[in-house]
Design a protein around this nucleic acid. Sequence first.
DNA 1: GGATCCGTTGTAGCT
DNA 2: AAGCTACAACGGATC
Length: 520
Amino acid sequence: MVNAVVWMRNVLRVHDNPLLHWASNSDEVDSVIPIFVLGSSRGMGAESRESDNRIRFLYDSITDLDKKLRDEYGSRLVVLQGEPGRVIPLLAREIASEGDWLVCDYLQDPVSRREVASVRESVAEFGVETRAFPSVTTVLDIESVVGDEAYREPKSSSDIDAILRRSLGEGPDGCLVPEPLGRPADLKPDTSAFDSLSESDSLSGLLVSKDEIAEGASVLGVGEPYFPGGESEALERLKRKVSEMPDFVRRFSKPSTMSTNDPDNPMEPSTTGLSPYLSTGCLSVRTVWHECLQANLSSDHTKPPQSLIGQLMFREMFYLLSRSVENWDDDVGNSNCRPIEWGEYDEDLVSAWESGMTGFPYIDAMMRQLEATGWMHHLGRHAVSCFLTRGQLWQNWKHGRDVFERKLVDSDWALNNGNWLWLAGVAPFSMPYYRVYNPCPDSKSSLNVEAKEAEFVRHWVPELASFPSRYIFEPHLAPIEVQESAGCVVGRDYPHPIVDRKESRRVNLELFKESLSRIA
DNA sequence: GGATCCGTTGTAGCT
DNA sequence: AAGCTACAACGGATC
């Protein structure tokens, strides 16, 4: 009787799941025990400061997965609470024997790599061999690409395109992404193993029941979350936003507006909204990739880097860089971060930014949306991160990175750090630092502001609900009679701008230039 | 080996 | 109103 303990870290799904697929198909494996560890790097570890939105998303995803395993496979998800290096050996002692397997998904970030190394060592004492499957979170096998002698760090869309083609082969329309795996046929449930786990003394207090998870989720906010967690939601959304929208996929280009034109759903984002599901592994990136290819088959379509597949390519690029660049998440000792002399940490500035009280309605609306929903539009992320760093507040990008990491439901170590490096203008792959976003967009801005954006501000900054569109992005410029009749006097009901946007932009450009000249 | 070009996604002012 | 231009001006790749 050979057991395979399937430790799902960032793969909270049944579709295209190489771990379950292998355990299901392997003749060597007699029984499969799927587990999740709350307290791991992917499940609210000890240092976790994650927001309620993120925890709720995770709980919902676990619940959905457990339900699928029960209803469709007669199996279940064993949820353990604690450090993986401690609780997995306890579980192994209870049920494992010589020749058993621990399988998990490979993750590239340092904490997850350390975590699996320590678990591998400790379960080896029980004769259990650990196998980490590559290409679960990403299309590429990160470790093998980065370990290749020919590997050079990608810095542009053509670099990552070349790496993908070399690594996966040439396809008719770019690289050849492997087909997603089908659902496993049989997950070889072993009821007696599940029973012995729940009766075990050494695991008592470490096992988390589905009722406890459900209860935990129910106290985190009332009503429907903006993005409900789970594979079922993920596949439903993929169908709704990609598979059934081939024209949207074919025409996808850099987003220029935040919302769709759907009058019934003014808050529905103009992008796919699939990122929360990708970041937790509720959705397989290969599955998304192939759905996009499918949509592109029927006629002409946009191409990388601007297409949806282009977005996925940059995702692969940041995963590679996050593995090969030392100190990827730091501003010192990071070869991809030029040393810019940011201002002293200013708690007033950073907390005004974080809480949406900067006096810049567009910025504030987005920061409040982030707080409330755990999500912010792509364009909003550009605007607020530029604002905090090289644009207006001249604060170190790491302060903003921390806020995003904690609050975003789609937060992802590789991508979050990569995007902040890019937007702060410090990375070799970033946009030129002197391209500063206007935090008060007008009709000529690249943000292509329309009436919808004014509605967006009114929704998230209710103080300005009655403000006329003409002044809504810079309410302090409205004549006092206008402010009074809109019921919002700047300085009384809504803050004055915390900085002069033009002056701060001018000064910051000079400071950035100065820092650069010091390096050279 | 210096000049030139390019880089996923700018802004503001003028006509 | 859309389109042009000036602004500001980096670093790496390429020829």
